[in-house]
Design a protein around this nucleic acid. Structure first.
Length: 500
RNA sequence: GGGCCGGUAGCUCAGUCGGUAGAGCAUCGCACUUUUAAUGCGGUGGUCGCGGGUUCGAUUCCCGCCCGGCUCACCA
């Protein structure tokens, strides 16, 4: 018999034994006086003498390790990422309780009532006086000191990863702090959090291929949104002058260490400001988020220092110049010369060519937090033209660790110009560009009612989290990243064969 | 989608120049009433990712496939 089957059978028998002792193998509730981290916070520094006046506690958690020694034993309870030792002695608990202790498995969830003391070696420990059974483990937990390392299992069974690897738990705690910090900062500035459709009749607000789904009753195909942008700007038209949304976008494209098909974006819009206002707001938001998440505006990513209190600022052309490799280094004048640009890229227009050069030469080298501005209009169908050079738009992106983490611009609020841009995109779509923007006539109609001048920005929460948690892959900051189907698990069959 | 790397016990890994496998932990049994990777002794546990081919014989060699990782392409 395979070991797993054997273990299931043994533990199934233990369920009955636990019941025979008068305990429920799956408890209903347990009121603890302290969570394990609270015990450490309150008593972690107390000496054996200070603990001598019987401090009674009720604690709960999952058994992480268990060491039995004849008529006594120790176990560690794991709760909220921290462990607390429990000591059980045969003549200190009821007989049935000691028998229950003898049935415990690594991974069971129990509650313990007792008093605090320090062992000979000085470890803060609960001297158990009563054990309550709360939940039975039926399978084997990963091994105790190598933990769970298999990447596939970590992603597929994230719950095991969270139990076995406390640093993984901390990544997701930090992710939550990042989102809470951004929310708090935006709320404090008078932004209103809103929710806009995830299922849309038309997709827009970004250059990407969408997922398609179908609504049966309406008999209509719907797209999972690739961005909330056009809906948020409709709200700005409607007088919600400061809005933001933190939610998922879906893009039907490749998967990599920097891309997951569903990912989380913060988008925010502020009326009566422009991209310069967004630059200042971004600097404040990111600096404070880094501090709230990590305790410092300076973080280490892959061994390199990134200071979110100090942003570099370069135009796209300056960035190409700075990171140019090769002998034929161009001048700034070359980068403004359409013919020169077209000679140095496969792209068909000067603006696309400049963006291409930027991506090829500069992007991966933008390690320090850097603001890149002066974007070509061709790659920015929703941004307002620059007043001095209509081939460019008032747009910037923020890069760090070689990744784009934010994208922002002065919003295009001229419906006539927006119509022209959409039609330009339609022409590109006709030319085979699957990611070109579609025409959204209702959005044009909204602009025709007048949108105040506004700045808007999107920040990629997953990538920001990667940087602030020093994670190499986006899958390490998404609890359940998309994976291919796993195949047969076979557990249901085994459980059925054990059932009464 | 292309290239490279990987998949051996529940976990972490070794190994077989082709003769059907091993360690530690976990698990089971015994001993042990302040342990810390508890300790000591003894056991159980494997369709070596899946399917073909070559061979007297394949976990090992060859081909195809599945799953994962990295990377390129694409993208944020």
């Amino acid at each position: 018999m395979a070991l797993e089957d054997e273990m299931l059978r043994q533990r199934h028998e233990r369920l009955a034994q636990i019941r025979e002792l008068g305990f429920e193998p799956y408890g209903h509730a347990f009121e603890y006086t302290h969570a394990v981290p609270d015990i450490w916070a309150e008593y972690g520094q107390k000496s054996a003498e200070e603990l001598a006046n019987r401090i009674e506690v009720r604690v709960a958690g999952r058994i992480a390790t268990i060491r039995r020694m004849g008529k006594a034993g120790f176990l560690h309870l794991l709760q909220n990422g921290e462990k607390l030792q429990v000591y059980i002695k045969k003549d200190a608990v009821r007989e049935s309780n000691y028998k229950l202790y003898e049935l415990l498995d690594n991974g069971d969830i129990i509650g313990v009532t007792g008093y605090l003391f320090r062992t000979k070696t000085g470890e803060l420990t609960v001297h158990a006086e009563e054990i309550v059974f709360l939940s039975k483990i039926m399978l084997a937990l990963p091994e105790k000191w190598h933990g769970l390392e298999d990447i596939e299992t970590r992603y597929r069974q994230r719950y095991l990863d969270l139990i076995a690897n406390q640093d993984v738990r901390n990544v997701f705690v930090t992710r939550s702090k990042i989102i809470a910090s951004l929310r708090r900062q935006l709320d404090a500035r008078g932004f209103l959090e809103v929710e806009t459709p995830m299922m849309q009749l038309l997709y827009g607000g970004a250059a990407a291929r969408p997922f398609v789904t179908h609504h049966n009753t309406l008999d209509t195909d719907l797209y999972l949104r690739i961005a909330p942008e056009l809906y948020l700007k409709r709200l700005v038209v409607g007088g919600l002058e400061r809005v933001y949304e933190i939610n998922r976008n879906f893009r039907n494209e490749g998967i990599s260490t920097q891309h997951n098909p569903e990912f989380t974006m913060l988008e925010f819009y502020q009326a009566y400001t422009d991209y310069r206002g967004m630059i200042e707001l971004s600097k404040d938001l990111l600096r404070q988020t880094a501090i709230d998440a990590t305790g410092s505006s300076e973080v280490t990513y892959e061994g390199r220092k990134l200071n979110f209190g100090n942003f570099r600022q370069l135009t796209m052309r300056e960035a190409v110049l700075e990171f140019w490799r090769g002998a034929d280094k161009p001048s700034l004048a070359d980068l403004k010369d359409p013919d020169w640009l077209l000679r140095h890229s496969q792209e068909k227009s000067p603006g696309l060519a400049l963006a291409d050069l930027f991506e090829r030469y500069a992007e991966e080298h933008l390690i320090e937090p850097t603001i890149i501005y002066e974007f070509p209009a061709e790659i920015s169908p929703l941004s307002k033209n620059n007043a001095d050079d209509s081939d460019f738009v008032d747009r910037f992106e923020i890069y760090a660790a070689g990744m784009e983490i934010a994208n922002a611009f002065t919003e295009l609020n001229d419906p006539q110009e927006q119509r022209r841009r959409f039609e330009e995109q339609l022409a590109r779509k006709a030319g085979g560009d699957e990611e070109a923007h579609v025409m959204d006539e209702d959005y044009i109609r909204a602009l025709c009612y007048g949108m105040p001048p506004a700045g808007g920005e999107g920040i990629g929460i997953d990538r920001l989290t990667m940087i602030l948690t020093n994670s190499k892959s986006i899958r390490d900051v998404i609890l359940f990243p998309l994976l291919r189907p796993e195949g047969e698990i076979g557990l249901v069959e085994k459980l059925r064969s054990l059932a009464p």
